[in-house]
């Protein structure tokens, strides 16, 4: 029954026009970035390497598909949570708002299974979104710009990774990015369990992300103990795969924290939905 209901939930997601906004927005944004980089990508590179270029010259195919994929991922990962929350934020509350919740619960399925089926459908949608972004960024990027070594600027300086050592990093980076976006999906469904209107959980999800991101970026010692436990702190962990050596322990820490958040949000959503009064 869970499987059947999950398929139903996924069909419902596909039937909503807003589900395609994310795919369309991603396609448009990546196309714009590709066009901008093709037209004036050297400016971006010189911005990154400016202080080094007084003394050093960087030779070779720097503006390549690997760099473009990194830029795309870096630019869009900030905005994709909105696209995810837009669809997943009303999965439960939307039913309540439209009055279809009672009908849904007349089926021979437990409330827990209803929440889980919606979670699985949301996870599948998020996966498709990440997969599409990965395809556009890595494969289309490499097709348009060719391949080459990847030059990455992080807080320690420049890291130049050989072309042959990059694809696995993208694979794992997209996995961690997916886990981060899944946290957004479960958070929004969790908030959705508390609400009876569609827009509330979507806006609340974004407000929480903005709040946590600001706390994470404030260089104030009061927040130092909180920061490591905020899921937003670990949303950029995908970047760590482009360090050399890869800080595996930090990445595992991020993965565990994101998984714990997911379990927490799912648990809270199940708890709340089981207590939810649907008769009034």
């Amino acid at each position: 029954m869970l499987r059947k209901n999950t398929i139903n939930e996924f069909v419902k997601i596909l039937a909503k026009p807003r589900s395609y906004i994310g795919i369309a927005a991603l396609t448009l944004l990546v196309s714009i970035i590709l066009f901008a980089m093709k037209a004036d990508g050297k400016m971006y590179i010189s911005f990154v390497t400016a202080s080094f270029e007084q003394t050093l010259s960087f030779n070779g195919h720097i503006l390549n598909g690997n760099l473009i994929a990194f830029i795309v991922l870096q630019m869009l990962i900030v905005h994709i949570p909105l696209l995810v929350a837009l669809v997943t934020g009303d999965l439960l509350s939307g039913e309540a708002a439209m009055g279809t919740l009672r009908m849904l619960l007349t089926k021979p399925i437990t409330r827990t299974q209803v929440v889980l089926s919606k979670m699985i459908a949301a996870a599948t949608y998020t996966f498709i979104l990440v997969l599409w972004m990965g395809f556009l960024a890595v494969f289309v990027g490499r097709w348009v710009f060719g391949t080459g070594d990847l030059i990455v600027l992080n807080s320690d300086g420049l890291v130049i990774l050989p072309d042959a050592d990059i694809l696995w990093r993208y694979g794992l980076a997209f996995f961690v990015a997916y886990l981060a976006l899944l946290t957004i999906a479960t958070l929004s469904i969790c908030l959705s369990a508390f609400a009876d209107n569609s827009i509330g959980p979507i806006v609340s999800t974004m407000a929480i992300i903005i709040l946590f991101t600001i706390i994470g970026s404030l260089d104030v010692s009061v927040f130092d103990h909180i920061k490591p436990y905020l899921f937003t702190t670990h949303m950029a962990s995908w970047r760590s795969f482009f360090n050399d050596p890869v800080p595996w322990s930090a990445i595992w820490e991020s993965i565990w924290i994101l998984i714990v958040h997911n379990i927490l949000f799912i648990g809270l959503a199940i708890f709340q939905f089981n207590r939810k009064d649907i008769t009034s």
Partner: peptide
């Protein structure tokens, strides 16, 4: 003389 551009290099999520 090497300096990292802060807007790019600053790791927003570095704790």
């Amino acid at each position: 003389k090497f300096k990292l551009p802060k807007s790019v290099a600053a790791d927003l999520h570095q704790t």
